[in-house]
Every structure is written in structure tokens, then in C-alpha cells.
Design a protein around this nucleic acid. Structure first.
Length: 825
RNA sequence: GCGAAAGUGGCGGAACUGGUAGACGCGCUGGACUUAGAAUCCAGUGGCCGAAAGGUUGUAGGGGUUCGAAUCCCCUCUUUCGCACCA
């Protein structure tokens, strides 16, 4: 028999919608719980990953509703960005059309899953009423001095005449035309996220966040204490500051290396007779992949600039090189090189025959230059370092820095790996950056009253690979807001991370046309109590959103410091051990399974297959297993419906009952306890469902009929009635149906969660495991409060124990209360 | 390469605080029902030896701490995620 999931699911979805079960407002007296899942990019098809993620969230939502909270669970679409543009090109359409079509499809699919969303708050980021506030925020940031323009390098395909994303330029080859990708320097808008770096480093105001996300963010921000040392270029008045965490090795610095992008490179190579060669080298380095460039096993290559610098501590003249292993993004783009004590420098010096000088000796002074096979990076004592000789290098770090500060050749500084947020994208499908370029006034922000700067719709997407906005004269040509003269609009659009940095706040007041959201409303709902999304967002999205929240706080829009109190990072859905993707051809379509088994089955499978933080391996047979479980519940209740309705729904707690009934009561109450704690303490649904399955097995094996004692009937009823309650978070439709079949009139969501009674969890006997030398040899069952000494005696007297202890001396006996006895012989 | 995690039967996983490894489910094997299949129900199921009782081995690999290690420490291997223009 197959339970009628199609009718059941449709029926309850309709009832929830009519009752407006999941629509919430501030006036409602229950306390708030804001539950948010990362919103999807609307590809048009619901992916298994979505179902998994949103099933986890919905389970938490429903559990909290039953525990008396009003749960705000909104849904929206992260609908700007490259995939939408590419999708439209492929389908010879326009992203405006395809995106909205896709959104409509996805909304329908979400509804068929029965997720408990407040649809009145739907947010679509590519709609004007949303992105206009991106522009508004940009202007506020501009006012606050958080926005600036600087040039930086982008992947450039010379044949397509377009900027490429890193993923489109893999291996240095353009994804479309296979041309070699170049690095091109262009002007871009940046946001000073680094102004908030210290606050972003402080995770103390967060609730329950995975430690690993915090660690990843800390490493990403990469705070390091060090010293900035100012080198001067020989015979020039040019200063070349370097940042180092190892000022103790400064006397061993024998050359310098600059990044190929370093702004002074041009000056330094001006007098070099082999200038052309150097320029060619620079071009080659620039076109290398950045990850490859810094990889330790990549060959370190370089070229001499022809210029020298002066080591400020000993006035030595040292050569200045350009190398592939130095990046402009970190520190000052110039490093002092100490080949004896840095592995990369060591390799580089050997390759180009540069001098190496030991300045840190092993405590036994055994380090010999000629015998060194690698750099010595451990602790030691300073040598050849003038007045710092014989100091431990750890102390010398401090002393040398102080001394350099006094001499004015260096200062202690803090450096961060975190860079400012580049938001410019040379693409069509994004929020236009509200800036106008005037020949006289320069870059002028668009006045607030003139927002939104509308993204023109009448654009031939895909005709050229260049940013289509460039070919819309009505958009580009405008007048300067300052002087009224002719001007051009900025054609760059914003990074889509901008959209997703504040959407959680928009959900609090999704249709406000006068401001991004009403402060009071946002302060009521925020912060998000539980945020759920993939670990891949650990550094970027989650940092941008934290930054944005602090910025919104500083302009008075919100009154909290952090946007997301608790965070759950869920795993992805895999098949054959790999992430589901089009290119691998291992995609499984959720809709097919919803049609075949219903959304309850799909949810139960997803939640049961693994704990939420881990990946879920797709398994067709496993889905059938989930269906079988739900079917068994339905059959059990349907077959006995009349009998069940006749059973007493209360019983005398003190009534004497037979052992088998006591056991069932234990099963009921321990299952309630297990499911409750697995949901609210551990957020582990697989074990909760396993416990429920076990309980169902116990109930199915239980014999109860018209002739049974009254107390037995009551215990049986209690055992069955607990099932729909505990099932609601995982299989909500069936849960409701079973609940109503038991004669209940209202939605189970309106009834409370179910409590267990500690009294019924107390057992009279306990099994002790007996180990001999740590190996399991026997078991004894004793009264629960048997004293330790008696347990020891009983264990030693045990027949099987005797077999192993005979003729041997018992050296030690360890008794762990209610668990085991270990006898060491 | 750097940063962060993970690795347990044929498979997904459980073991929460260092204390019975393999809960629960899938698969498989045998049986019941059936003309037959599907579905359902019952029993068994880490490997090896054994008819059984039982023994022995076993949590990626190697070493260590402990009465006792899947769990703690060190080393190695493998896989996954992120690395700033995918979202």
C-alpha cells in the first residue's frame, strides 16, 4: 500500500496558506525567532542542495513554532550576477525575462515542498525596488569616506575585449575563445572594509558559530605584528618601505625583491640597459595565475632591476630585484630578503647566485653556510648583527624594532591580509554604480533624490561580449549633477555580494519605498537568530555581511553589532562522492522525487542521511527507505483508526502496569527526550529520526486490543500520539494528517511541543560490562543503586571472569558507575 | 602552495564527557504470503576460524599516552571547501 501523499501534502499546504500559519507580524505577542537560510540564485530549477538546506531550516522553524515562538522565515532570490547574464545569452533572451521566469518556477517548487515561508516578504535583488537601496547605501558610504577608486588588475581577454572572472580564466585561458588571458590594469571602486578590520576580528559578540568559520575568518583577515623598515634607493631620494615580521634578521638582508606590479618599478629600471628584457619578464609574471605564483613548489624566478637599495642598519648596498613570488596585495609589495632564514629567499638566492649571510645561529653554533640545504627558520642567537650579537632572536625582534624606531628608520606596525572590497564589475546584470563622470567636476555621486539609476532594459544582451551598458547612449550620456554640463555615467555595476550583504535586514520590512527598511522594524527582528548556509561562504559573504551590519549601525539604521547570532553551515549534496554539477552529469532533480514519493519523504531522507554539517550522499534506495518509514506510520494509524480513537488519552501515573507496558512507556518518553535534545541542543536530525524509527518499531511490536487492560491501552495511545508530534519538523504534512486522524481538530502546529516525564526514564536495573585487561569478557545485570564495592565483588565472582582470573593475580579493579568494571590481571 | 575540515562494515551513518564499536536505515542472504512479480512481514548480516559455544581481528596508515583510544598527542596518506570578478 502506498499512502496518498499527493492529496495529503496539497491539503495541508492549502490549510497552512489559508490559516496564514507562517505569516508573522510585530503585533503578535509571541516572542520572535528570526530564522534565515541563505537565499538562492534563481536558476529556475530547485537543486537537491536547496531542498537539503531548506529542509534543515524548516525543521528548526516548525520545532520553534511548536515551542511558542513566532518564527520569521522569509525567502528571496539573489538574482543579479553573471549566471543570469550567461543564461540569457544562451537562451537568446534577456535576463530581465529569464530571471523572472525562473523565479516563478522556483517559487512554485518551494510551495510544493511545503516550506513555511512568509511569502509577503519576498525579496528579489534584481528588482528596482531592491537595488535602488544598494545605490543609496553606496552613496552613504561615499559620504562617510568609505568608498574610493583605485586601479587594480583584472583578467582580460584580448580577443573578447572583456574582463573575465577567475573561474572563466582558469589556467590562464579564456573559457570562450581559448585565448591567453592577460592582466590589465583598470580603475575600480573599492569599499574600505579594512576600516572595520579590528571589529571584524572580534567574534566575541556572536552566539553559536562553528569554530572553524571563526578560525577561517581570522586567518583570512590575517593580522600580523611586524616592523616597517624604510630602505632608500641608492643615489636617489626614493623610499622603499618593506614590511617584515622578522626584523631580527635585518642584518642578514642581502637583496630586495619587488612585486612586478610595484609602482616604483618603472623608475628603478629606467637606467637599465636591458630594460626591454625586464619589461617582458614583468608582463609574463603578471599573466601568471596568482595562486600558482605563490605556491611553494612553483619555481621562484626574478630579474635584476639595475638599481640598488641601502640597508638602513649597516648602509650596505644591496641589489633590487623583481620576483614572481612577491605580491602587491600584501604588505608594501616589497620584501627584504634574508636567504639564510627564509626558504623562498634561500631558493631564490641560490638560483641567482646572490649572497647569503647567517645572522641567526643554532644554540650550539653548528650552522655552516656551505652545508645549508635549506633556510634556518628556527630560534637561535644573533651573530654578525652589530650590537645585537648574542641576543636571542625572540628578544632581538623587540630590541631591533625599538632601536630602528629611535633612529627613524623603521616603526612597529600591524599588517592585515584582508584587502579592501572591490565592487566594480564590468557587466550588465547588476546594480549600476551611482556615479557620473564630468569633464570639469570629475567623479560625482548621483544625488539621492535622483535614485534609482535604472538599469536600462532595452539592451541587446550577448551581441557583444563587452559590457552592454557601454552601447546604450541614453544611459551613458547624462548631465553633471553639480554643474549641469555634459557627463557620462559609470557603466560598472556592483558585485552581487553587495546585494546579499543586507538582504536579511530588508526582510524585516520588504516593501518599504522610502528607505531600505524601517529601523524600528529591523531592530525588532534583528539579529537573525539562526542563519543557515554553506561553509563556502565562511570568508567572503559572511565577512561582507558582518561589515555591512556594522556600517548600518554607524549610520543609525540598526542598533546591534552583529547580523547573525547563530550560524549553521550545512554540507552539500553529493552523488558518487562528488558535488552534483552539470559538468559531471550527476544531477538529481528534486521535482521527480517529489512527484514520486512526496516532499515529506525527500525531507526525511535528506535529514536522515547525515548530520546537517556534513555532506549528504544521494541514494535512490535510501529515499525508498524514508518512504517506507512514513508509509508504516500511515498504515499503522489507518488500520487501527477506530480502535485508536476509542483509547483513553490520559492515564493514572501511579497505576501498576505490566513490564511490557512499562517498556513501551520508557520508549515513548526516552524518544521524546532524544528527539527534543537532538533538535535543540545538537541540531542533529539524523539521530532524532533514527530514534523515531526505533520507537515506531517498538510500537509496531506492541500487542494491544479491545481486551487489553485500561492502563495498557492508555500507554499504547500515548506511544502513538507522540509520533505525529515528533514527526512534525521532519515530515510536516504526514504529521498533520496523522494528528487529525487521531481525532484532533486543529493544526498540530498550534498545539505545543511534547514533554517527557523524567519519572518514566528511571530504570531499576543496569548492565555492567566486565572487561579483563580492557577486553570485553562478560556482563552482569545489577540493581541500579548497588554500591561500587558490591559491583566489584559481583564482577570478580562472575563465572566468566573466573575463567580469566584463575591462577592470576588481580592487580587493579576499576569500576565506572553504571557502566563497566575493568579487571587488570 | 596557503588556510579550514573530514576519513568508522558492501553503502549512508551512530557511538554526545576517554568506557560494550557498528544504533537507525539501505543493500544482501534465507524464510512466509503470492499462479508469478511488486509490495509487505519474520530471521540473519564487519572480517577470519568454528556446527555451535566461543575465539580472534577490526574505526585511512604508522607511532605514542592510558587500566581502557574511533575519541587525546606526533608523523604520513587521501578526499572536500575557500583563496578576493561564481554565488
Amino acid at each position: 500500500m502506498e499512502y496518498p501523499f499527493r492529496e495529503i501534502e496539497k491539503k495541508w499546504q492549502k490549510i497552512w496558506e489559508e490559516n496564514r500559519t507562517f505569516y508573522v507580524d510585530i503585533e503578535d505577542e509571541r516572542s520572535k525567532f528570526y530564522l534565515l537560510s541563505m537565499f538562492p540564485y534563481p536558476s529556475g530549477v530547485l537543486h537537491m542542495g536547496h531542498v537539503s538546506n531548506y529542509s534543515i531550516a524548516d525543521a528548526i522553524a516548525r520545532y520553534n513554532i511548536m515551542n511558542g515562538y513566532k518564527v520569521l522565515q522569509p525567502m528571496g532570490y539573489d538574482s543579479f550576477g553573471m549566471p543570469a547574464e550567461n543564461y540569457a545569452i544562451q537562451h537568446h533572451s534577456h535576463p530581465e525575462i529569464t530571471t523572472h521566469e525562473n523565479i516563478d518556477k522556483m517559487r512554485k517548487q518551494f510551495k510544493s515542498c511545503g516550506f513555511g515561508y512568509d511569502w509577503d516578504r519576498e525579496v528579489i535583488t534584481c528588482d528596482e525596488d531592491y537595488y535602488r537601496w544598494n545605490q543609496w547605501f553606496f552613496l552613504k558610504m561615499f559620504e562617510m569616506g568609505l568608498v574610493y577608486k583605485k586601479s587594480s588588475y583584472v583578467n582580460w581577454c584580448p580577443s573578447c575585449q572583456t574582463v573575465l572572472a577567475n573561474e572563466q580564466a582558469e589556467g590562464g585561458i579564456c573559457w570562450r575563445c581559448d585565448s591567453k588571458v592577460e592582466q590589465k590594469e583598470i580603475e575600480q571602486w573599492f569599499i574600505k572594509i579594512t576600516d572595520y578590520v579590528e571589529e571584524l576580528l572580534d567574534h566575541s559578540k556572536l552566539g553559536n558559530w562553528p569554530q572553524r568559520v571563526i578560525t577561517m575568518q581570522k586567518n583570512w583577515i590575517g593580522k600580523s605584528f611586524g616592523t616597517e623598515i624604510i630602505f632608500k634607493v641608492a643615489d636617489e631620494e626614493i623610499e622603499l618601505p618593506v614590511f617584515t615580521t622578522r626584523p631580527d634578521t635585518i642584518f642578514g638582508c642581502t637583496y630586495m625583491v619587488l612585486a612586478a606590479e610595484h609602482p616604483l618599478v618603472e623608475k628603478l629600471i629606467a637606467k637599465n640597459s636591458e630594460k626591454e628584457k625586464v619589461l617582458q619578464f614583468i608582463q609574463e609574471v603578471l599573466n601568471e595565475d596568482k595562486i600558482e605564483r605563490t605556491a611553494e613548489d612553483t619555481e621562484k624566478i626574478g630579474v635584476f632591476t639595475g638599481s640598488y637599495a641601502i640597508n638602513p642598519v649597516n648602509n650596505e648596498k644591496i641589489p633590487i630585484w623583481i620576483g614572481n613570488y612577491v605580491l602587491m596585495d600584501y604588505g608594501t609589495g616589497a620584501v627584504m630578503c634574508v636567504p639564510a632564514h627564509d626558504q623562498r629567499d634561500f631558493e631564490f638566492a641560490h638560483k641567482y647566485d646572490l649572497p647569503i649571510r647567517i645572522v641567526i645561529q643554532k644554540p650550539d653554533k653548528s650552522l655552516v653556510l656551505e652545508e645549508m640545504k635549506e633556510a634556518y627558520i628556527d630560534e637561535g642567537v644573533l651573530v654578525e648583527s652589530a650590537k645585537f650579537n648574542d641576543q636571542k632572536n625572540i628578544t632581538a625582534i623587540e630590541n631591533i624594532s625599538k632601536w630602528m624606531e629611535e633612529k627613524g628608520i623603521g616603526r612597529r606596525t600591524v599588517h592585515y591580509r584582508l584587502r579592501d572590497w572591490g565592487i566594480s564589475r564590468q557587466r550588465y546584470w547588476g546594480t549600476p554604480i551611482p556615479i557620473v563622470y564630468c569633464d570639469d567636476c570629475g567623479a560625482v555621486p548621483v544625488p539621492e533624490e535622483e535614485l534609482p539609476v535604472r538599469l536600462p532594459k532595452d539592451v541587446a544582451v550577448g551581441k557583444t561580449r563587452k559590457n552592454p551598458l557601454l552601447s546604450v547612449p541614453e544611459f551613458v550620456h547624462t548631465t553633471c549633477p553639480k554643474c549641469g554640463g555634459p557627463a557620462q555615467r559609470e557603466t560598472d555595476t556592483m558585485d552581487t555580494f553587495f546585494d546579499s550583504s543586507w538582504y536579511y535586514a530588508r526582510f524585516c520590512d520588504a516593501h518599504n519605498n522610502n528607505e531600505p527598511f524601517d529601523s524600528e522594524k529591523a531592530n525588532y527582528w534583528l539579529p537573525v537568530d539562526q542563519y543557515i548556509g554553506g561553509i563556502e561562504h565562511a570568508c567572503m559573504h559572511l565577512l561582507y555581511a558582518r561589515f555591512f551590519h556594522k556600517f548600518m549601525r554607524d549610520i543609525g539604521l540598526v542598533n546591534t553589532d552583529e547580523p547573525f547570532t547563530n550560524l549553521l553551515t550545512q554540507g552539500m549534496v553529493t552523488k558518487d562522492g562528488a558535488k552534483m554539477s552539470k559538468s559531471k552529469g550527476n544531477i538529481v532533480d528534486p521535482e521527480e522525487y517529489i512527484d514520486r514519493y512526496g516532499s515529506d519523504t525527500l525531507r526525511v531522507f535528506m535529514l536522515f542521511a547525515s548530520p546537517p554539517e556534513k555532506d549528504v550522499e544521494w541514494n535512490d534506495e535510501g529515499v525508498k527507505g524514508a518512504f517506507r518509514f512514513l508509509n508504516r506510520i500511515w498504515v499503522l494509524v489507518t488500520e487501527k483508526q477506530t480502535f485508536l480513537k476509542s483509547l483513553p488519552n490520559r492515564y493514572d501515573e501511579k497505576a501498576v502496569m505490566p513490564g511490557f507496558a512499562k517498556k513501551l512507556r520508557f520508549s515513548t518518553h526516552s524518544t521524546i527526550k532524544k528527539v527534543t535534545e537532538d533538535i535543540n541542543k545538537r541540531m542533529q536530525f539524523n539521530t532524532a529520526i533514527a530514534a523515531l524509527m526505533e520507537h515506531l518499531n517498538n510500537v509496531s511490536a506492541f500487542e494491544c486490543n479491545e481486551q487489553s487492560e485500561k492502563i495498557v491501552k492508555a500507554v499504547y495511545y500515548e506511544a502513538i500520539a507522540a509520533i505525529p508530534k515528533l514527526l512534525q519538523p521532519f515530515a510536516p504534512h504526514l504529521s498533520e494528517e496523522v494528528w487529525s486522524m487521531l481525532g484532533n481538530q486543529t493544526s498540530i502546529l498550534e498545539t505545543g511541543w511534547i514533554d517527557y516525564n523524567e519519572k518514566f526514564l528511571i530504570q531499576d536495573e543496569v548492565t555492567y560490562v566486565i572487561q579483563i585487561n580492557g577486553k570485553l569478557r562478560s556482563k552482569i545485570v545489577v540493581d541500579i543503586d548497588t554500591p561500587k564495592e558490591t559491583v566489584e565483588e559481583l564482577a570478580l565472582a562472575d563465572e566468566k571472569t573466573q575463567k580469566y582470573t584463575k591462577g592470576k593475580t588481580v592487580r587493579k579493579v576499576i569500576v565506572i558507575p553504571k557502566k563497566l568494571v575493568n579487571i587488570v590481571v
